[in-house]
Amino acid sequence: MLRFWFKEFPQYPCDHTDYWRTRLISYALLVTTSYFLLLTIINIVTFSNFSLALLDGTGLLFSLGIFAWFRATGNVTVASWAVTIMVTALILLFVTSAKGYSHSLYWATLVPPFAFFLLGRKFGTAVSTFTFFICVLVVYKQMETQQPGYFAFGSLLNVIEVSVAHILLFRFYEQARSSAYNTLAIRNTEILQLAETDKLTGLFNREKLESTLITLLSKVDEQHPLSVMLLDVDHFKKINDQYGHFEGDKVLRVLAKKLQELMREEDVVARWGGEEFVVLCATTSLEKAMQLAQRIREDIAKQVISGHALTISVGVAQYVPSDSLDSLLGRADVGLYQAKNNGRNSVIAA
């Protein structure tokens, strides 16, 4: 039954801004429908009061009508207004009929949570102001008549019922808030990843590489040297010219994955641009970086990358105290240029 009642609207997935409004509308309609149905039965069976039963039955039909229309259209805005008006009218009818006695005024405190959540700040303020204005008039009438207040069992029931309703409402709001916060955190993580990641290869992009390199440079000392590799795919232009850019992109994706597999855990691999890649080798001397670069070059030369035999040229440089970020990468680029001039498929230190 509840699975039928709480319809999932494809246009309002769980991360949509209106998702929780649809849930509150369904909850409110479930409560009001059950309320009117119960009162209709009680007035007919227990009290034989057919006039009140007719009034409650009308409310039942109205609640079911909103529910059926909402399920058919999924119009959150209109349904929000209909539910808010119905809930507000129901509460004010009870408050005015009880003349504010027996703690009936306590029910009016349920209107703002509904109105603000469903209608927003502007109209939520208007509906809440109107509701409390009616409550003020009721209290003013009490002052005029000078009637004594009675605290009977009905007063206790009103306090208990409204308190339970508040707990359930704010439990619902906390669930909505927590869900929205978690969704926002996931989206922020995705946005950060997109900002730091090269779309084609999934490696760090140039901006993330530079920020990581700046961080590593601040930690360099004699015990923690830093070396940089600049890698370039030899004759990559031939692949694009002969097989097309889509095939070239495929080769770069597979090569990027292969480079990640060949690197050590502490190494940072990034796409520099085109068919060029940069590797940051933390706590690595020039000698060890050269050995790593040679091993990578040899391994790539033995592989068939996406159906192509590839070779790479590599320039390697170690940070020295006079280096800046640009000069360190510039020296690695000089080594790469020399490797290209030396016939490619080689590693040169600069």
Rank of each mutant, 00 (worst) to 15 (best):
L90Q: 12
L105W: 02
A108N: 08
F70I: 09
G59L: 09
I91M: 03
F116D: 00
L92F: 05
G74Y: 06
V76F: 00
S102Q: 12
L93H: 15
A72C: 12
V76H: 02
F70Y: 13
F114T: 03
G100Y: 07
K99S: 10
A115S: 05
I85A: 01
L110I: 04
L119E: 00
W69Q: 13
T58R: 05
Y101M: 09
A68V: 15
S104K: 09
A72N: 15
N75K: 10
I85M: 11
I66T: 12
S80D: 05
V78A: 08
G74D: 08
T77Y: 09
A68H: 15
I85E: 01
A115W: 05
L92C: 00
T96H: 10
T88R: 01
P113R: 01
V78N: 11
L92K: 03
L60W: 06
V83F: 03
A89R: 09
I91N: 00
K99T: 09
T88L: 05
P112W: 00
G65C: 13
I66N: 02
H103A: 12
V111D: 02
L119W: 00
A79V: 11
S63T: 11
Y106H: 08
L105C: 05
V111P: 07
L92R: 01
A72I: 14
V87M: 06
H103R: 09
L105M: 10
V95R: 06
F62P: 06
A79Q: 12
Y101E: 07
G65F: 14
F67G: 11
T84Y: 02
L61C: 06
G65S: 14
W81L: 05
L61G: 14
F117L: 07
L61P: 11
G57L: 05
T88I: 05
T58M: 06
L60S: 01
F70D: 11
V95K: 08
F114I: 07
G59F: 00
L60C: 01
T109N: 14
V87H: 01
L64F: 00
A108V: 15
T109Q: 09
G100A: 02
P113E: 07
L110K: 11
W81Y: 14
A68P: 13
G59K: 09
F116M: 07
L105T: 13
F116Q: 02
K99P: 07
S97V: 08
L118K: 10
